[in-house]
Design a protein around this nucleic acid. Sequence first.
DNA 1: CACTAAATCGGAGGCGCCTCCGTTTATTAC
DNA 2: GTAATAAACGGAGGCGCCTCCGATTTAGTG
Lengths: 206, 206
Amino acid sequence: MVTEPSAIAEQKAQAAEAKPLRVDAQRNRDRLVEVAASVFAERGIDASLEEIARQAGVGIGTLYRHFPTREHLVEVVYRREVEALCAAAGELAEKHPSDVALEQWMQRFVDYIATKRGLATSLRILLNTNSTLFSDTSGRVSQALRQLVEAAVADGTIRGDVDASDVLHALSGIYSAPDTPEWRDRSRRLVKLLMDGLRFGAVKAR
Amino acid sequence: MVTEPSAIAEQKAQAAEAKPLRVDAQRNRDRLVEVAASVFAERGIDASLEEIARQAGVGIGTLYRHFPTREHLVEVVYRREVEALCAAAGELAEKHPSDVALEQWMQRFVDYIATKRGLATSLRILLNTNSTLFSDTSGRVSQALRQLVEAAVADGTIRGDVDASDVLHALSGIYSAPDTPEWRDRSRRLVKLLMDGLRFGAVKAR
DNA sequence: CACTAAATCGGAGGCGCCTCCGTTTATTAC
DNA sequence: GTAATAAACGGAGGCGCCTCCGATTTAGTG
């Protein structure tokens, strides 16, 4: 990666790579990603690419120029979603006391995973194939979590004898639980339980 | 599985399940599996199913009736090949001294894996998805190997302080080696090396 | 503004997937 | 052998994938 003079407030990270896309091209690309996110969420990862192009109001050729394979498109959508999830950490931290921020972020994490459950197989394949994707995103997620946990530990709203990796470990247990209908509710309860445990013995009583 | 009165010399195992297929149907089915094996080997696991039907001289509809999805077809082909590999163990054991039989079988195992290397990703996915397939076939393979190893230990052509699982372990190392151009040759040499080790200290000197 | 080169668009076309159903064939009963 | 019936055949058709390239649009220049 080349050193960027001012990478401030770059709306979309991909916009800054190499050449600044022509405005119509950028517009179409953004549109495609947005539509793809909703179509994938709705119809699954095997949704018709022609359908996506149609909904985005572009020709199929345009879709393929921007995203040579289905996987390219899926990857961009996935990265964007992970990015949004991680960005939420910062926002929550500003608006809420740090323990509440942590709890809400974990709930959001659960919700996010819930939408991905159906796609699990395909996603796992993608993550196996493209290991950069895996390390990038999991790094990003654990960084967001660390930020929240450390803040909460620092101001005493949760106990001090845990760190981010403990919490991540707890969350990964949730992820790997079998995919039953009650999964989501159970996971939400588990997050609450986890938070109660974290708050117990905190410096500041509630 | 219902008790079978006489399951003797059933040419193809699948022929015995439930209803005895009409002869034309059985003929077409066998033909399809045979052609599929060669086409998959040649063009990879994503080969055109219409091509397979064409080469087998049947309509695409016939292929789909017998094998509702690509995976069904791949699975049958794969099982058939593993079966052939394991059957070879018995034949080799009859024709050769037991240490030679073991060596030749391992070489054949290497050859077999070699043809599957290119398909590794897709196959791994299939084996993950269909865990029965995995346990069935790996069980079958290790059984064949055990038969050979035990015979060779019993008649003293290889040393007595190893068992089948040791040898399988050694072979699995071969499998997981990176997929370089020299893979096959190196693996063949490794098998020879392994055999030398096994023969060393055998009761009967060569 | 007009003009041009470069970038982008978009859909026709060729191929494969899979389903559906009218036609053909094997089997059974007589 | 013939008729009846169940089973199997096979290809047309609709859809999606992906490529290719002529038409269109943009950004830059005078």
